[in-house]
Write a protein that binds this DNA or RNA. Structure first.
Lengths: 249, 249
DNA sequence: CATTTATTTGCGTTTTCATGCATGAAAGTA
DNA sequence: TACTTTCATGCATGAAAACGCAAATAAATG
């Protein structure tokens, strides 16, 4: 049997069942597991499959979404993501919200980080799960059409049952006078619940959003531990925040 | 024997079997393997065949994973999606699994359908929420790296609390003998819970997956109400399923 | 026709490739 | 932690490919 035939067979199995076990292929084709492993290794190097312990899984899962990635202020968001990495340590349990900044963060996480992520955003969850050493848990609930995060009572209930080391949130409105604010009542509720579920709170926001306010208040600034923007902490634009009880990044 | 004859013979063999072995041709035509190799090399340079170690394979031989990251058997899956629409009525409460077939279904849903969807797949959820008249509720939990669906105890618990009109599932293994089967224990548990949570059960599967079995059993065929494939219900390939207590689409 | 020239073919040798097995390391599991 | 499964690695073996060379065949030329 030709090597190409074998690999085609494996590919077909993966297309059909999403994953294959080396032992199964070995048995089905009556070849040694070594050969299967070598095939999988080769195919993995060509990017055709994703090798995992015991076999391989398909790589065809790729969301048709952010492909046309024209994210607003993406450069700044990438910078924020990079800075945020400093807060993440091995074995942490982390809770995240949604938004494009969080997506950038999820992409930027180093492969060797070993941590548990709770998230209310399916997109962030899908991005995070690409990392081999992360445990990703989605807090489910009604999916908001506008913000693409889970909202509603069930989310609140689930959040009441966890306590995480660090919560990472994007901000909608953020100002000295009004603290963190939001325009959507449901989102306010969810964010408050996330706040309660976390020991520390970090806000990721492009500087542009600072000093803007929305209608509804999520919390005061003193409940925020870290504020991460694309600016240097000593930037004059951040002057008003430099003397508060929060750490600037 | 002329070179053209030989090469024509080889082409014929390749068209017939999609591949040839140098040793076989050598034996069949009583010529040395070197000659065969030289022929294959020549033909490969002309782009007629694809030379590989041990012989050659036809030019038409692509890997079953169609170029890039497009979906395997997408046409068939779109057909399945179209047929499935007949089962969906206004104000239904529907529970769905994951997989590329389900994604196609989510895309195919008409904008005027007014229904509530529960799903364990973040990808399906994101696709569904694009429709203005759907309420989308994600059943959250640990996100499986291999199948991109939520698994684990929390999913089971949440499923225990709902009762939906119709459950739509893709199948991993499906056969008369073994019923619906899966390769992942966690997924089995989730699918069983989905079964319990639903009044009716529909399986969406490309015909290619029928008559294949995986290690672990999800349920018997008599628990399935609808089986939807890309084939016509009276297709002879579905013969074995036509007399069962399930409706074919 | 004879001779030269070019092409094709087969054979032996050397390299490269494919595969299975054995071993110890690594990862997962109880 | 101890136990099992899976991985990676090197090695041995056999198969196939590449290469050069010479014989055989075909084509071309005078």
């Amino acid at each position: 049997m030709l090597k190409e035939e074998r690999q085609a067979f494996i590919m077909k199995q993966i297309n059909l069942h999403n994953k294959v076990l080396s032992t199964d292929i070995s048995a089905m084709l009556s070849i040694s597991e070594d050969t299967v492993r070598r095939d999988l290794k080769e195919m993995a190097e060509e990017g055709k499959v994703l090798k995992v312990h015991g076999g391989a899984i398909g790589r065809s899962f790729h969301y048709p979404f952010d492909e046309g990635n024209s994210v607003y202020a993406q450069a700044a968001k990438k910078q924020i993501a990079e800075k945020t990495l400093k807060l993440l340590k091995n074995d942490m349990v982390i809770l995240t919200g949604g938004g494009t900044t969080m997506i950038e963060l999820a992409k930027a996480i180093p492969v060797n980080l070993r941590a548990t992520f709770f998230t209310i955003s399916p997109l962030v969850a899908l991005q995070l799960v690409e990392h081999p050493n992360l445990t990703v848990i989605t807090i489910g609930g009604q999916l908001s059409r506008s913000s693409h995060i889970h909202i509603g009572a069930s989310v609140i209930n689930q959040l009441a049952e966890i306590k995480v080391d660090l919560c990472l949130l994007g901000a909608n409105g953020f100002s000295i006078q009004d603290g963190m604010t939001e325009s959507d009542w449901e989102v306010v509720q969810v964010k408050r619940a996330m706040l309660r579920a976390s020991k520390k709170m970090a806000i990721l926001s492009i500087a542009e959003k600072l000093n803007s306010s929305q209608r509804m208040k999520v919390c005061d600034l003193n409940q925020i531990n870290y504020l991460i923007t694309e600016l240097e902490p000593d930037n004059h634009f951040l002057g008003a925040y430099q003397h508060l009880d929060l750490e600037l990044f």
